[in-house]
Amino acid sequence: MTFNYDEYVRTETIPHMWCPGCGIGIVMKSIIRAFTALKWDKNDIAFVSGIGCTSRMPGYMDMNTLHTTHGRALAFATGIKLAHPEKHVVVVGGDGDATAIGGNHLIHAARRNIDITLIINDNAIYGMTGGQYSPTTPPHMIASTAPYGMVEPNFDIAKLVMGAGATYVARETISKGIMLEKYIKTGLAHKGFSVIVAESTCPIQFGRRNRLADPVELMHWLKNRGVPKTKAAGMAPEELQDRFVTGELFRDDSRPEFTEVYQQVIDAAMKKENK
């Protein structure tokens, strides 16, 4: 039996606007599979994004969807979650959206440990605007604003959000859809701020400039850059240069979740007021 994705899709909005060979579809499917596995009621999910290719995903999803301004998805999502702490709030975005223009919101959502799941489709490029470099474009790779190669250092998104206080952090390439789905599912079920970095591909804007125009070839290139956590543990730092570690990278179930802490504030304030 084939998997039925339609339950969570606004089928009337298909075909989507993504390019042939784009990695976002795999991420979207992984998210839908995770929702299905968790049996989440689509009426209870707010699905929020910023601006960019990945951020067009909510338009195709059949739930309470919000396509906000560039980088600001987590700010809007924080308002939704505080208004309805009992509902599910899920955010998707690209690397530029989530870590450049949205970098401040990212670290503060992590610091609060608010119960929101963020899924980043990291294709290392600004796709929609025409292939400009992002905070995760690997060194020396060509972008439309890096014609001589990327000269800035990268963010390691996983380390960034771990340092900022996220309590579930995982990373996987889109070549391993099953693992990606598993991490997303765990992140969704986790109480606290969870980040799943989906290392993804943009054959048109990233691949074509870097002799990786073929989507399959680009996927192989991406897959080979990933190093599973267990394998990475035995590797020297120089061996890990220009590569990224995959797997469940961090989990902490002990830190209090923000809306639960705030509920205690409400309970105390109301008790005091009614005395």
Binding site: L66, R72, A75, F76, T78, L82, N104, H105, A269
Partner: peptide
Amino acid sequence: PQVGGRFIQMEDEIASMGAIIGASLA
């Protein structure tokens, strides 16, 4: 919080505007 409402000091002005839109939609 005394009336069961919620307050948040966001990380910047942009975020506070975003948060109130999110809460209003909810």
